[in-house]
């Protein structure tokens, strides 16, 4: 029986250290730790002058599982589902313990709530439309993202896109969700099972949206369903978004494409309205601007005229 992994000491990697792979002998220079979770720790590293993210864990099987998912994504050509996989290897520590790691593309950017607060609400719709499209592709491939939460999402720069960075929870449809976080978990809120189906991701996505309005989250209370309804009512002002989030939470929408279409329609409608408003505004402006210059000219002329009269009369 294999209980070796349990006795392994925690990973102790310092910045400035170089990690050399046991199999492929590639060298990664550690810049800093990016974060650590239940499964492992992610480091920002430099390999051949390129920044990469390296995830290491004492649970070899978790790393292998995640690599399998990233490899499956690789097969979906021409579409960026998650960070691309660069290398898989083992690291042997100074005291002889073996830790598995994989290296992936480093995606830098902002977290979603920060980005929205800085750049405005309208960005939320743009980002979600793109994200829903990616999610649909993932679902079409037979997977469910699973551990969808604010911490696992990054808004990449140029172009601004919402992307997922940690694929640890990605599960084949029909199986039990591999990894989850209570606040985003459908079963925790008693709104469904913990079986991997597209609706599970959409519930979590709705919670990601809610989390923008409630940065510290909220507890589920005695009646979780009611709590959710209340929180949606209180926080979201846009009637359409409120409706959408409600449907995603209730499982009335079970396809990512439906979310995309709904949002697209909403944005189009908004655009038409703003165009109308702008038209009206610009008409008004024209009238005003045509009026202003004459006033100015008259006033300048009259003032200079008064000055001239004053000078000629009294000097």
């Amino acid at each position: 029986m294999n209980t070796q992994t349990l006795k392994k000491p925690d990973i102790n990697i310092l910045k400035g250290q170089t990690i050399t792979g046991k199999w492929h002998k590639k060298k990664y220079y550690v810049v800093k730790e990016l974060g650590s979770g239940a499964i492992g720790t992610v480091y920002l590293c430099v390999y051949q002058n390129v920044q990469v993210a390296l995830k290491m864990s004492k649970q070899s099987h978790s790393i292998t599982s995640e690599v399998n998912v990233l490899k499956a994504f690789k097969k979906v050509q021409g579409h960026s589902l998650g960070p691309s996989l660069i290398d898989v290897d083992d690291y042997i520590s100074a005291n002889g313990h073996v830790y598995s790691f994989y290296v992936m593309e480093y995606i830098s950017g902002d977290d979603l709530p920060n980005f929205i607060n800085r750049n405005g609400q309208e960005w939320l719709f743009t980002l979600l439309i793109g994200f829903a499209k990616d999610l649909q592709t993932l679902h079409d491939e037979g997977y469910v993202f699973g551990d969808l939460k604010t911490d696992n999402l990054i808004v990449s720069r140029k172009p601004a896109r919402l992307r997922w960075v940690d694929v640890g929870g990605t599960t084949l449809q029909g199986r039990a969700i591999k990894e989850y976080t209570e606040f985003y978990d459908r079963a925790y809120w008693q709104m469904g099972s913990r079986k991997a189906d597209p609706g599970y991701d959409l519930f979590a996505l709705a919670m990601v949206i809610l989390r923008i309005y409630y940065p510290n989250g909220f507890s589920r209370g005695d009646n979780p369903r009611k709590t959710l309804q209340q929180k949606v009512q209180l926080a979201i002002r846009s009637q359409s978004l409120k409706q959408l989030v409600g449907k995603m939470l209730n499982g009335d929408i079970d396809k990512a494409d439906q979310v995309k279409d709904y949002l697209l329609q909403y944005v189009m409608k908004q655009n038409q309205q703003t165009q109308l408003r702008q038209k009206r505004l610009s008409q008004k402006n024209q009238q005003e601007t045509s009026f202003h210059p004459t006033l100015e000219v008259v006033s300048i002329l009259s003032i200079s005229g008064l000055c001239y009269i004053y000078m000629t009369l009294f000097l």
């Binding site: 294999n2 399998n68 083992d90 073996v98």
Partner: peptide, 13 residues
């Protein structure tokens, strides 16, 4: 499993 090269490990996993 841990002694297998990473590629084969994936299949066993």
């Amino acid at each position: 499993m841990e002694e297998l090269p990473p590629d084969q490990r994936g299949e066993v996993m």
